[in-house]
Computed example of a mutant assay.
Amino acid sequence: MEPGGDVIAELAADHRELEDLFSQIELQPVDHPRRRELADRLTAELVRHTVTEELHLYPAVRKHVLHGAALADKELADHARAEQMLKGLEDRNVDDPLFNDTIAKLKFEVASHMREEEHKLFPKLAAALPPEELVELGRLVRRARETAPTRPHSLLPNTPPAHRLLVPGTGLVDRVRDLLRTTTR
C-alpha cells in the first residue's frame, strides 16, 4: 500500500494480505513445518490489524456512524473470537489435528468479518466522514501498525483509553519475543 491511503484502503489492503496468508498456508502439505511459519506470520498480521482497528477505526465508527456503537461492539466481539482461536493455535504443532481445524475455523471467521466490514461498515464510514478525515485515519492506522502487538493478548483492553496506553509497550515486548523465537529456531 502506498503511503497516504485512506483508512478504508489501508484496512482493505490488510484484508487482502490476510487472505493471501491463508492461501499460502492451505497450499502447504498438511504437516509441513512451513505451515507453522505462515501461521505465525498470519497471527502477527492479524493481531496488528485488529489492534489498529480497535485503536482508530471503531472509535471513529462509534462517533460518526449512525448506530456506530452497536456496529463497533459487534466487530469487537468478532475480534475476541478470532483472538481466542489465535491463542489456541499459538503452541500447536502442525501435526496436531487441531492445528488444521483451528486454521479452517479462523479463516471462516476472519473472512466473514472482512466481508461485513467491506460491505457494511466501510461504506457507512465513507458516507459519514470527509475524505481528508479518512486519510488522517489511514495515517494513524499506518503509524499504529508499527507499534502494535504481534501476539494475541486476551487480557489487553480493546477500547480506549487503556488500550492506547498499553498497546505500544505490549507491541515492543512481542517484537522482542518474536526476535528471540526466530533466532532460536
Score class of each variant (00 low, 15 high):
178 D>N: 15
109 E>T: 03
165 L>K: 11
17 E>M: 10
127 A>Y: 14
58 Y>R: 05
127 A>V: 09
80 A>R: 14
174 D>A: 02
82 A>K: 02
26 E>Y: 06
90 E>P: 07
32 H>L: 03
144 A>G: 13
64 H>F: 12
163 H>G: 10
133 E>N: 01
138 G>V: 02
38 L>V: 08
74 K>M: 10
145 R>N: 00
60 A>H: 00
83 E>A: 14
39 A>S: 09
141 V>N: 11
45 E>F: 15
112 S>G: 08
72 A>H: 06
20 D>V: 06
6 D>V: 02
2 E>N: 14
135 V>M: 13
20 D>Q: 12
11 L>K: 03
49 H>F: 02
75 E>W: 03
129 L>G: 01
81 R>M: 13
147 T>E: 10
104 A>Y: 09
24 Q>A: 13
110 V>F: 02
141 V>F: 11
77 A>R: 15
147 T>L: 06
97 P>I: 01
102 T>Q: 10
20 D>S: 12
36 R>T: 05
108 F>I: 05
65 V>K: 07
159 T>Y: 08
144 A>P: 06
185 R>M: 04
176 V>Q: 02
28 Q>G: 00
32 H>Y: 10
115 R>E: 10
13 A>P: 02
25 I>T: 05
35 R>Q: 04
78 D>H: 08
143 R>I: 13
172 L>Y: 05
109 E>I: 00
184 T>E: 15
178 D>L: 12
97 P>A: 04
131 P>D: 03
64 H>T: 08
173 V>R: 09
12 A>R: 12
72 A>M: 08
49 H>M: 06
103 I>N: 11
73 D>S: 13
22 F>L: 10
91 D>V: 12
157 P>F: 12
154 S>P: 09
85 M>Q: 14
53 E>N: 00
54 E>I: 12
166 L>C: 12
127 A>N: 15
153 H>I: 07
183 T>G: 14
81 R>P: 01
184 T>A: 15
113 H>C: 00
120 K>F: 09
23 S>L: 14
3 P>Y: 04
30 V>D: 10
